[in-house]
Amino acid sequence: PDPCHDEGGAPRSCVPGLVNAALGREVRASSTCGRPASRTCDASDPRRAHPAALLTSAGAAPGPLCWRSEALTQSPLNVTLTVPLGKAFELVFVSVRFCSAPPAAVALLKSQDHGRSWAPLGFFSARCGHDFGRPPAPAHGPPGPGPEALCFPAPQALPGGGGLLAFSVQDGSPPGLDLDSSPVLQDWVTATDIQVVLTRPATTGDTWDSTATGTYSYSAAELQVGGRCKCNGHAARCRPDPQGHLLCDCQHGTEGPDCSRCKPFYCDRPWQRATAREAHACLACSCNGHARRCRFNMELFRLSGRRSGGVCLNCRHNTAGRHCHYCREGFYRDPGRPLSDRRACRACDCHPVGAAGKTCNQTTGQCPCKDGVAGLTCDRCAPGFQQSRSPVAPCVKTP
């Protein structure tokens, strides 16, 4: 079954499945051990390297399982992990599995413009005021009205020495917001890139501060970004193009990486995101097969009761009008052919001498005849008239 159309072929909202958007993506780490090589880490030796690629390879690479930062000795001890997702996704969760005791403070950021600007999604620390200058998150989520980046407890330490940071986009969103109807929630969950900033390493208790001395490092095995490829309800899957860029497989007359605009000929009404109730498919302009391009006119759309605003451009086959639905001057409708026929409009063919003009009646094809002249094209004298020698008055009354 086609998830984007019902059994009758009518469009319906469709979304790609939930995936780990970070899987196979190239992670950039601001610090990775092994350059220069140490006893336990050598970037040039695959058996002893701890590259950031391990975070998104799902254990596919041989050798060590964990990425590791350099040994950090001086404040600030920030290390940043950046994952470009390749295109816009609608986030569901972000998780980081740490190989050693988890950091005491982490900031989670997102970009919606491929890394040009960043906005926080959440902060994680037992000392929110100290680390981020923010109060701890209220027990029942943000007071609203919109989602916001809150400061949550520090990543959880797991038995055996590892740790886990788990963030759900719902954690920053007030209850009751619906993705279909809330543009602010749509904006909140949308990201093209994710950044995890490890700002304070694990220490014994809360005693660490900027004057502390020692050697610290971060280590993590997996970074997951759970989400759906963002297609605005107009595609059920995303696929890589020949250059490897991920694109929505757009339906409903839409196009673009996120199906966020109508295809050129599908502009009879404005683009809209699909909802569970209404697919809001882009509609093709009605040009009776005589035009390849059209443009949207908001004034006409309003006047039509928000039903149709498309205006056909460059009507061909001698047609004219907003929908190429009548014949242009000098042509008339052939009643024997449907309006969509290439030859639906016939030339008037008014007689050069018998007709008083070149434009015929667009419905009947009747040319305007001079006095005493008859026929559809004014090519003969009416009964009771005979041809004269004057081209100005070609027919005169029969004596």
Binding site: P352, D379, R380, C381, P383, S390, P391, V392, P394, C395
Partner: peptide
């Protein structure tokens, strides 16, 4: 009654050369 079509050869174009060209 079907009337014959206008016969262009019967017209005297002497004073209407421009009309002849247009035709």
């Amino acid at each position: 009654e079907v009337m014959p079509t206008l016969d262009m050869a019967l017209f005297d174009w002497t004073d209407y050369e421009d009309l002849k060209l247009a035709a």
